[in-house]
Computed example of a mutant assay.
Amino acid sequence: MTIDEAARAYLGTPWRHLGRSTTGLDCIGLVLLAARDNGHALPDPAPYAREPQGTALLEGILAHAVRVPTVEPGDVLLFRMGLYGGHVGIASTHPAWRAPACIHAYAPHRRVVEQPMEGELAAALIGAFRLTE
């Protein structure tokens, strides 16, 4: 199973700040669980604020992943919230659309969703990262 396939199993899970189970997930929780389900043991950075705290999220990602120039399914995506990276998702190819997409626990949708990489989502993308552990 790939990380994006593992993440897809959580579609529809309610959004909850600091959530780490099928009763509720935030964006970091989704990445942690999908990575775990794929054999990657990543440390949990909780607790953390709901708003970006400078470059902390980017630094946390870089401790376990490398930046990649081309996005592939399963890569961790970092998105800007204001000036800093404050949201993460998992790159995918949507099975019905066959187009680049992102699986993420997204507060405005109040659940885990898979949506096309277009519009505001694509504009907010800071970079893609591939897990090394």
Rank of each mutant, 00 (worst) to 15 (best):
Y84T: 08
L11W: 03
P45A: 03
V88A: 06
G29R: 04
T132S: 11
E51C: 04
H17Q: 06
T55Y: 09
V31E: 04
V76G: 03
Y106K: 07
L62R: 10
T93N: 03
L131I: 13
L78Y: 02
L18M: 13
G127N: 06
H87W: 05
N38T: 15
E133H: 13
C27R: 05
G82Y: 00
R130S: 09
A49D: 13
Q53K: 03
M81P: 00
V71E: 07
E133F: 15
A124W: 02
T2N: 13
F129S: 05
T2M: 15
L30V: 10
P69K: 13
L125P: 12
A91S: 10
P14E: 02
L33N: 10
V31S: 00
T132C: 11
T2C: 06
P14Q: 00
H40K: 02
R98I: 00
P45R: 01
Y106S: 09
L11P: 07
G85N: 07
T13F: 04
Q53D: 13
G39K: 01
G54M: 04
G60F: 13
G119A: 09
G24H: 01
H64Y: 15
A105V: 09
L121R: 07
I61D: 05
V68M: 08
E51S: 13
M1D: 14
V113C: 02
A65L: 05
V76C: 04
G74M: 00
P45V: 15
M81C: 14
R130W: 07
R20N: 06
T23L: 14
A65Y: 05
H64A: 10
G39L: 03
E59P: 01
G86E: 10
L33Q: 06
E133C: 15
G74K: 01
G82N: 04
P43F: 06
A124C: 10
A34W: 03
H109M: 13
L62Q: 14
W15G: 01
